[in-house]
């Protein structure tokens, strides 16, 4: 079972580690900034960014002024953004642990992947839950095409729904495609200009955080591989993934 316990005080759980991934420019940093703005009053937050050019994302977040500068740390990936969140997660783990050491009262550490492509997802050894971010500007078909993040991340966000009329995308259809690619897993159509969608996002996070605190959140690997098409694996691994180590 994953070890969520704080090594110093085992009665206290370490913060939830939340991964944010998805293609370049879909709004990962904006989503983190949005969550910081929404939750800064109620939760203690910190952020680790991974960029191909190291600290673009960190600088964006620092300049957004939504979080104390020292709570935003950038990790270099040596031009290997996939490796850094998937097979050798050491640099990210160390950054998260350092933040957790400096700010022992943190509730959530968000980790932004270096914007890359549709197949990059986080190792469950690094994050407890992950959000995959698409946007309507990437085209209405992206959700239907699927991929590990789209199909099996804990939450799929279809961002910038306010742009739909300008890019000729039918949001209702795109969300329906996303839902059918994801079985029961949640989808939020998000826009920073749509209050209701922001509330859906924060409600999802509150839910995940509650599960994490209760010790019942089991990190799930969206996998780099396509799901088996035999139907047998449907819904499998959600909530009852097998052994993995921290």
């Amino acid at each position: 079972m994953p070890d969520h316990a704080d090594p110093v005080d085992p009665t206290r759980r370490r913060p939830l580690r939340l991964g944010i991934c998805g293609p370049v420019g879909t709004g990962k940093s904006s989503l983190i900034a949005l969550l910081c703005r929404e939750l800064a009053g109620s939760l203690e937050l910190a952020v680790v960014t991974n960029d191909i050019y190291t600290d673009e994302d960190a600088r964006f977040l620092r300049s957004a002024g939504v979080l104390e500068v020292d709570r935003i740390r950038a990790v270099e990936t040596g031009a290997c953004p996939h490796t850094a969140i998937r097979d050798d997660i050491t640099a990210n783990l160390m950054a998260a642990e350092e933040l957790e050491g400096t700010y022992p009262f943190l509730d959530v550490v968000m980790i932004e992947s270096g914007g890359d492509n549709l197949t990059a997802t986080f190792s469950p050894a690094l994050v407890d839950a992950q959000v995959f971010v698409l946007d309507v500007a990437g085209g209405g078909d992206v959700a239907r095409k699927g991929g590990p993040g789209i199909e099996r991340a804990d939450l799929l966000v279809v961002n910038k729904t306010d742009l739909a009329p300008y890019v000729g995308v039918d949001v209702v259809q795109m969300l329906a495609d996303a839902r059918s690619a994801r079985d029961e897993r949640p989808v939020v159509g998000l826009s920073r200009t749509d209050r209701d969608s922001i509330d859906q996002l924060t409600a999802w996070l509150a839910d995940v955080l509650a599960t994490h605190r209760a010790g019942t959140l089991v990190p799930v690997d969206p996998g780099p591989m396509a799901a088996h098409g035999d139907g047998v694996g449907h819904g499998h691994g959600h909530g009852h993934a097998g052994a993995h180590q921290h």
Partner: peptide, 11 residues
């Protein structure tokens, strides 16, 4: 190089 010690971050 596959040793998980973040070697890919060094030049």
């Amino acid at each position: 190089a596959r040793l998980p010690v973040a070697g890919h971050t060094q030049s």
